[in-house]
Amino acid sequence: MTDALTAAGLHTFYGKSHILHGVSLNVAEGMITTLLGRNGAGKTTTLRSLVGLTPAREGRIVTFGQDTTRWPPFRIAALGVGYVPEGRRIFPNLTVEENLKVPNGRAGDWSIERIYALFPRLAERKSNRGRQLSGGEQEMLAIARALLLNPRLLILDEPSQGLAPRVVQEVFAIVARMRAEGISVLLVEQNVRQSLAVADHAFVLDDGMVVWSGPAVELAADETRVRTLTGATAEDWEGAAPRVLPAG
C-alpha cells in the first residue's frame, strides 16, 4: 500500500524551543489515520510542519511522492492537501459564501454547489458573516473550505473541540464519508474513543515524540492506555506504560 504522506524524523522549533524530537508517521492512502496525545504533546505542531506553516528544521516530508519538507503552504495545498486548523479559523469578517471563495484549489469535483448540497445549513446561512455562525456551523465551514481544494488528503486538527455531542457525531460522520470518497485523512482529536472507532491507524504523541503506533483497533482494545489518553495528564501517561513501545 502506498502512503499519501510520509514524515520521517521531524524536528520542529518555535524560535529556540525544540518542540518535535524526531516525529515519524505516515498516512496510508485511502485510510483514516489518527494522531492522539495529551494537550501540549505536539500534535498541532506536527500538523503545522506537514502543511508548511512551521517547517521542520530537520527531517523529511514526502507528500504524494514529492519532497514537500520546505514547500510553502500554498504549494502543499495545491498538491491536494486540505487543512482544517485548530479553532477553525474561519474568516469572521467574510460571509459564508465569501469564505468559500478564498480557496484556490486544483481542479476537481468539489464546487460551492456541491458543498451546499452536503451542508444545507451553510446554504441557508450563505449571506451571514463567519462571526455569526455557531461553533458547529463554523466547523462545517472550515471543512467545506478545505474540501474546495479538491484534496486527496484532509488534515483535521481537533474538529470536534467545543461542539455539542450531536454535532460531534456529524463531524465524525463527515470524516468517515471523506474516506468513502477516497480521500485520505489525518485526524487529530481529543475525543479518543470515537477517533479510534473511525480510524484505521493510530499514532500517539507525547512530548514531541511518537510513543505508540499501530492499528486503531489494537489501541482501542487497550483499555488502560485509552483511559490514560482520555485522562490526559503527564503523570498518568508516564505511570501507565513504558515511554516507547515498538510499532504494532
Binding site: A77, A78, F91, N93, N104
Partner: peptide
Amino acid sequence: RAGTLDLETVSTLGV
C-alpha cells in the same frame, strides 16, 4: 479581505 485578518489560513487554502 480574508488576509487582513488571517493571512496564514489564506496561505493554507492554496493562495
